[in-house]
Amino acid sequence: MRKTTRYPVEGANSLWQVYKTVSFWKVAKSFIVIQVARYTPFMSVKNWLYRTFLGMKVGEKTSFALMVMPDIMFPEKISVGRNTVIGFNTTILAHEYLIKEYRLGDVIIGDEVMIGANSLIMPGVTIGDGAIVSAGTMVHKDVPPGYFVGGNPMQVIYTKEQQADRWADDPIYAKKE
């Protein structure tokens, strides 16, 4: 189960009441910063924008590809480790607005994680160090370190041990003694 905090609402659906839960000006600032970063070709500039203006935790040498969409309302709930690749057009959400409630949850992405293009990371999930998420995956639960996952719904493709066996003789990914 995802680790989210639930907040009930009365009356209209929670998205209709969005500015009771988050400042309009915060959302406006986040929107501008994210739109600039989405098209910026310089990884260090993107990371600086995310850290400086959105309060995201972004590790060294992490790469956000073109059109990545971090959460616009609660970007400070996103943490990405070092030397990670977030693929083209991936969305990382830290919130869910539903009919009778809204939910917030931290998103923690580890070191040296590879996330394929067009993936969706849901609020409240942790993706462990060295994990691989195939393109087009909806990550709706935690991914253990070193696992290879994919699909919708997300399923384990290879465990860390199976992945190590597959790469044992690979000239690039084999562990060096």
Rank of each mutant, 00 (worst) to 15 (best):
F53M: 08
V68Y: 05
D71E: 14
M56L: 07
L93E: 04
V107A: 07
K57T: 15
I86Q: 02
V58L: 09
D71R: 01
S79H: 13
P75L: 11
E96D: 13
A117K: 04
F64Q: 02
G116W: 01
K61N: 15
G81Q: 01
M67T: 01
S63G: 05
L54G: 06
G105C: 05
E112N: 13
Y50G: 01
S63Y: 11
M43P: 05
P75Q: 10
V107L: 07
Y39L: 14
Y39Q: 12
F64I: 03
F64C: 02
L98K: 14
L120C: 11
P70N: 08
N83Y: 05
G55D: 00
L120V: 15
I109C: 05
F74W: 05
G87V: 08
T91I: 13
M73L: 09
Y39H: 14
W48F: 15
G110S: 06
S44F: 14
P75V: 12
R82K: 15
L49A: 09
F64W: 06
V45N: 06
T90Y: 10
L104S: 03
S44K: 14
T90I: 04
A94M: 03
E60S: 05
F74M: 13
L98D: 11
V80P: 00
P41V: 07
F42Q: 07
G81T: 00
E101W: 00
N89D: 10
S119R: 08
G81Y: 03
I108F: 10
S44D: 12
L98E: 13
N47C: 14
M67Y: 14
S79E: 14
D106H: 11
L120Q: 04
E76V: 07
S63E: 07
D106G: 06
V85N: 00
P41G: 03
F74S: 12
I86V: 15
S119Y: 13
M43T: 12
R103S: 09
A94L: 00
T90Q: 06
K77N: 07
G110Y: 00
V113P: 02
M69S: 13
F42A: 03
H95F: 01
E60A: 06
D71C: 09
I108K: 14
K57A: 06
N89A: 15
M43K: 12
F74D: 11
Y50C: 00
